[in-house]
């Protein structure tokens, strides 16, 4: 019967030690993927995978990812919320695709430049 063995986990154990040693308790960015029923149906799980892939490939130790429930805007899912430590307000991005996620990493996460064309316009929260 296939089981996860200690040998399977050896590599993760090493990686974990390294990550936890590096992390100083401060994070530059937090990305939340909204995964309510509507989000999941619209592809939110793939978006989560993309975010995780970008973080791992770019070796971004100070960017964390979480998921949460519905953002209340079903027609604009999949959505993410980006919170930067040095920015006052969180930014919601709508209609996400893996390509758009890449762009958000290139510009918002790495250069602090908001990607305006994907962002939810301020004040439009209630219109959807």
């Amino acid at each position: 019967m296939p089981k996860i063995t200690i040998a399977d986990l050896e590599k993760i154990r090493e990686d974990t030690k390294r990550t936890l040693n590096f992390r100083l308790g401060t994070c530059k960015a937090k990305i939340t993927v909204h995964m309510g029923t509507c989000g999941i149906a619209a592809g939110a799980r793939d978006i989560l995978s993309s975010v995780m892939k970008e973080i791992e490939e770019r070796k971004l130790m100070d960017v964390i990812v979480t998921n949460s429930g519905c953002a209340g805007l079903c027609s604009k899912e999949p959505m993410i919320t980006v919170e930067m430590a040095n920015e006052p307000a969180p930014v919601k991005y709508i209609d996400m695709t893996p390509a758009k996620i890449k762009k958000i990493f290139d510009s918002h996460i790495l250069k602090n430049e908001l990607v305006k064309e994907y962002a939810l316009a301020l004040g439009s929260e209630k219109t959807a």
């Binding site: 019967m1 296939p2 089981k3 996860i4 200690i6 986990l9 590599k11 993760i12 154990r13 990686d15 974990t16 990550t19 936890l20 995780m52 892939k53 973080i55 791992e56 964390i64 990812v65 979480t66």
Partner: peptide, 25 residues
């Protein structure tokens, strides 16, 4: 095939699995 997160955390000797590297692994 079966597994559970309780054993997984014990085997990895960590309290939380919420790290990108760990989850991808």
């Amino acid at each position: 095939f079966e597994f559970n997160t309780k054993d997984l955390k014990r085997q990895l000797n960590i309290g939380s699995l919420k790290e990108v590297k760990i989850l991808n692994g």
